[in-house]
Design a protein around this nucleic acid. Structure first.
Lengths: 334, 334
DNA sequence: GTTCTTCGTCGAACCGGTTCGACTCCGAAC
DNA sequence: GTTCGGAGTCGAACCGGTTCGACGAAGAAC
């Protein structure tokens, strides 16, 4: 592999001149620039990333921390990963993907050794132990998902409260008086993904304001438990006419369950949900839903992080960005 | 951030002594070693990855190239990514995840700049344009998936031919005389994922040897096309008693389709399939299947790559490793 | 009591970039 | 005809590690 020294010799200039010709940080005669370019393409020169990182203290790499909870619906995660990676690349960064079960120590490892310029935390829970590590470390970070204590950290998340209110409003406007809410599985809520209770609390509060009945249940994450739980919920409340599903695995499995039960949508039951746009398309879900644009969230998080990296310390206060949901009516209510 | 210089000063030794105390490449008195350790933990020293990479020409990072074909069933990819990441970490490597749509140029970018020590190619197609780039580059690479021209490259893949033979044998032993095969979607086969025709050809060849009828169809990747295609296939061949499904999206959607149709398994129809162990568990699939252990494939690929990195040029000829499938009988045949 | 090893440590070179200060031209200003 | 300023370039220092050769001290061999 050719080094900058080889290029300099070939072009008959000094190393610093080659560097300046590349970066444009000082004026270079067009003649010299041409010779340098020629030498670079002749030799197939590509700057050594390690050397550059050492000299500039910038690696142009972002750490992406994933956590795999074995009971989680896997495709959901991928919805974030791809847009994050794409956006990073567009802004000149690569992605170091870390799946270490021990998140905090992984953060220290990649940050303290200066492998990355910043860190994206995916799938943040309310009392996420990784936050402390992220604060302790000298690299900026951004969270996808709202935690309980957000001091000093940038956050991007869907506005789950608003999403719940929109769905309840949608049903209330159509005259429904008794609603069912299938929330994420119990253990997901326990683990503290704050989105779960933010959505639930907002829905309950909104229903109460309108004087609606609302029955809240936890869903399941796998078949056949999903089908059983849906049957049980519907059996328990024959008078309910509106169903709100906040649970990817359940909504994906819902069509055949309702068909089997002989329940017609929307004639017998109005169904609304909350899922990502891509997810809905993947499974061709026929339900009116508030769509969380995972790609948009991911892109915003990366942009925010890179802005923070660029401006170092003087970047102003942390940002909490709630991305507004969008209701897409697919006619599953009446 | 403390540097090795700081540690040396604090411990009252030279930089090289600290380095040797860390690496153990030269003998160090236990007294000195203790003082160095103390200084390291006092100062919270972590070696700078860039500097180390520059000095050793090793980054301890592997590139992982993903391709997202929008029509592909996303969870399948994740089955590989996680084990790859885990195995790499266990062997001391991190993963640089690259999703650049232009694979070949991405390979050059990360390899020529020495960001990675080796490269894993996921989702390899028969005439994958990335192979040429991988050969041109000075870093070793390993493929997950068999390509047409494999010169000079290490490969790990499931033995799809053997998998097909095992499934045909399984049905033949039970007396089935007319079989249906639902292969991956047409466009997947066209793109050239070699596993598709390797499986299909082996199944057809094996069936012919036994004098069995076998009707081959391409499946779909999304609902509702999946259901329609299944219905069409079953309608067309009322005499078929064995169904082989080589298509993740179809097998995942199959239970409700058959239920709706009133087809009982295995009484009316024997069903066998090919999918990864994790995938089967995720969707609680009740079918006898040849299980491709994605985690095993991923781990083997990484181990192979790292062995290749360690032994540099003198690593012997490229390896083509077909991992044997395992048939798991779940009673969906009779 | 020399000489030869071995052990433990140090200094310096090196990896391959970036960046700062200084130096040389050369044309413009006065 | 100096002086000044800017354009263009170079040399050297620096980033933070690793590694090689050398060297002093201590013990072994004779």
């Amino acid at each position: 592999m050719a080094t900058i020294e080889d290029v300099a010799r070939q072009a008959g200039v000094s190393r610093s001149t080659v560097s300046y010709a590349l970066s444009g940080k000082r004026t270079i005669s067009s003649d010299t620039r041409r010779r340098v370019q020629q030498a670079i393409s002749d030799l197939g020169f590509t700057p050594n990333a390690g050397a550059r990182a050492l000299a500039t203290s910038q690696t142009m790499v972002l750490g992406l921390l994933l956590q795999f909870h074995q009971d989680e619906f896997a495709p959901a995660m991928l919805q974030y990963v791809l847009p994050i990676s794409m956006q990073a690349r567009e802004l000149g960064y690569d992605i170091l993907m870390v799946t270490d079960p021990d998140g905090p120590s992984a953060i220290h490892r990649i940050a303290d050794s200066h492998m990355v310029d910043g860190i994206v935390l995916l799938d943040v829970t309310a009392d996420d132990p990784r936050l402390e590590a992220l604060r302790a470390v000298s690299k900026p970070g951004v969270l996808l998902g709202l935690a309980r204590d957000t001091r000093g950290l940038d956050i991007v998340d869907l506005d789950f409260g608003e999403a719940a209110r929109m769905l309840v409003d949608h049903l209330q406007e159509r005259g429904h008086r008794e609603l069912l809410l299938i929330a994420p599985p119990q253990h997901v809520v326990d683990r503290g993904g704050s989105y779960a209770w933010r959505f639930r609390d907002a829905a309950v509060e909104r229903a109460a304001r309108y004087g609606l009945q609302i029955h809240v249940y936890h869903g399941e994450s796998r078949q056949p438990a999903i089908a059983e739980s849906v049957h049980a919920v519907l059996d328990a409340h024959p008078g309910a006419t509106g169903l709100i599903v906040h649970n990817d695995a359940t909504i994906a499995a819902l069509p055949p369950i309702l068909r089997e039960r002989g329940v017609r949508v929307p004639d017998d039951l109005s169904v609304v949900s909350l899922y990502s746009r891509d997810f809905g398309e993947e499974f061709s879900l026929p339900y009116t839903a508030v769509e969380s644009a995972a790609d948009d969230l991911g892109r915003q998080a990366v942009s925010r992080l890179i802005a923070r990296i660029a401006s170092a310390a003087d970047a102003g206060p942390p940002i909490l960005r709630f991305v507004a949901p969008v209701l897409r009516d697919r006619g599953s209510t009446r």
